[in-house]
Design a protein around this nucleic acid. Structure first.
Length: 424
RNA sequence: GGAGAGGUGGCUGAGUGGUCGAAAGCGGCGGUCUUGAAAACCGUUGAGGGUUUGUAGCCCUCCCAGGGUUCGAAUCCCUGCCUCUCCGCCA
């Protein structure tokens, strides 16, 4: 949620900045509602004050043995007025809140103009697209031929957009998870974290997935209103919901591997084959909770940590900054890492690293105590994938294949593969 | 699943209808003392919001959450959630 003070004091500027991402803010509606809010709130609080004063004097009168009947008569109507005012105020505030919860974050000045992913801007490249002296296969052909990837069985067990993996491919998939966790904990200073894979609606509101994006989520049908997590970002970031963090405990850096569940509603026909877009996939997520002035640097550092995974695996990639039209709802600024996929002859997203500034923190009431002001202030949150495991597996298979369809495991993973260096 | 106990400020914990936003202790901050530190002593110390040019003043709300009773609720009633103990079951 953006700062309601900005809405009140700087509405036109906010509206203008939101246009960059193609979002039109209904300023007239907000101005009208805000005027009502002010009027009703001032009235209601005056009534509350009146009631408090009178109740106190009734208490005093009774204590000194006076007759309180006339005093009670005086306040007879106050209660009804007050209730009406409180109810009206609650309505207005609810309405305002619903609107504000639906307003996306203000894009950072660095974010380029643009309407779609075609307008994203490449920042840098690492490595060159892998060259082959044969026609490279895609991961589906490779995985199926090696007998380690089975989409048909998965669709029997569950349905489309699931996978069964077996043998060395399954092991490689697990090895990637271990490798990423070890790298981020031992070299990048992140704390390994284990969290629930089901979350409540408050947590999803905190990160910005609700109320707007319920279509993307799997909701459980049990007695509790629980959802399967779409990313570890949700449970991990909510660790600090309703918490005031000591300054000397900042920054907090979490790395967390979880499965992720996404309904992928609205993506019919997109990436229907293979591992690229599944209802269930594994991801290693990096989350940082930082002081406001440090979030810009934290995004760079976190992005770099994610890049390290690709570099150590020898996978060519590029970094793009998302344009206004493509950036996520809660983010002020996002870098995507795109890995080269020989099977598709293109770069595909494998990590998305974002700075949310105080947007999630405000929804979550996640704060730190600023030693300078001695007051609790909102933290900034930064996160990114480090990396999406399924897509990393795809990239490995496709980039490390040979003419015989064997997969040569990069050295960084050897210690995790129990002596296997080639999958055949 | 059955039985019981309980949820109060950063923490421990008192408060069972009326100047209670809340005793006390710990912790934090400031000070005295000290070469410095510790100890001791003194002072101070919750959050959110409204109004406002205002970190000034004034006001409102908040004692798990949501309802209710009352002139008045941390305190009484109802519902939900969570925690703990015992029993049962169980990876």
């Amino acid at each position: 949620m953006i700062d309601p003070q900005l809405i009140r004091n700087d509405l036109d500027s906010v509206a203008k900045q939101l246009l960059k991402r193609g979002f039109t803010l209904d300023t007239e509606q907000l101005i009208a509602l805000e005027a009502q809010r002010k009027m009703v709130q001032v009235e209601t609080q005056a009534l509350q004050s009146e009631r408090n004063t009178r109740s106190k004097s009734i208490g005093k009168a009774r204590a000194s043995g006076e007759d309180i009947a006339p005093l009670l008569a005086e306040v007879a109507e106050l209660g009804d007025q007050l209730k009406a005012g409180e109810a009206r105020l609650a309505e207005i505030q609810f309405e305002l809140n619903e609107i504000l919860l639906g307003v996306p974050n203000i894009p950072h000045a660095d974010v380029p103009e643009g309407k779609s992913e075609d307008d994203n801007v490449e920042i840098r490249r690492w490595g060159e697209p892998t060259q082959f002296d044969f026609e490279p296969k895609d991961h589906i052909d490779l995985g199926v031929a090696l007998g380690g990837m089975d989409f048909e069985t998965a669709s029997k067990i569950t349905g489309s957009r699931f996978t069964v993996m077996t043998g060395s491919i399954a092991r490689l998939h697990r090895a990637l998870i271990q490798f990423m966790l070890d790298l981020h904990t031992s070299e990048h200073g992140y704390t390994e974290t284990y969290v629930p894979y089901m979350v409540n609606a408050d947590s999803l509101r905190g990160t910005g997935n609700l109320p707007k994006f319920s279509d993307d989520l799997f909701k459980l049908n049990g007695e509790q209103e629980y959802y399967l997590i779409p990313t570890a970002e949700v449970p991990v970031t909510n660790i600090v919901r309703d918490v005031i963090i000591d300054a000397d405990e900042m920054p907090r850096k979490f790395v967390c591997h979880t499965p992720c569940f996404r309904s992928e509603a609205g993506s019919y026909g997109k990436d229907t084959r293979g591992l690229i877009r599944q209802h269930q996939f594994e991801k290693v997520e990096l989350v940082q909770i930082v002081k406001p002035q440090e979030s810009g640097a934290a995004l760079e550092s976190l992005t770099n940590s994610a890049e390290q995974v690709l570099q150590k695996l020898g996978l060519p990639y590029r970094v793009v900054i998302l344009c206004g039209g493509d950036i996520g709802f809660s983010s002020t600024k996002t870098y995507d890492l795109e890995v080269w996929l020989p099977g598709q002859q293109q770069y595909r997203e494998i990590s998305s690293c974002s700075n949310f500034e105080s947007f999630q923190a405000r929804r979550m009431q996640a704060r730190w105590r600023n030693p300078e002001t001695r007051k609790p202030e909102l933290v900034h949150t930064v996160n990114g994938s480090g990396l999406a495991v399924g897509r990393t597996l795809v990239a490995l298979l496709e980039n490390y294949q040979d003419a015989d369809g064997k997969i040569h495991i990069p050295e960084a993973l050897h210690s995790y593969m129990g002596g296997i260096t080639v999958i055949e």
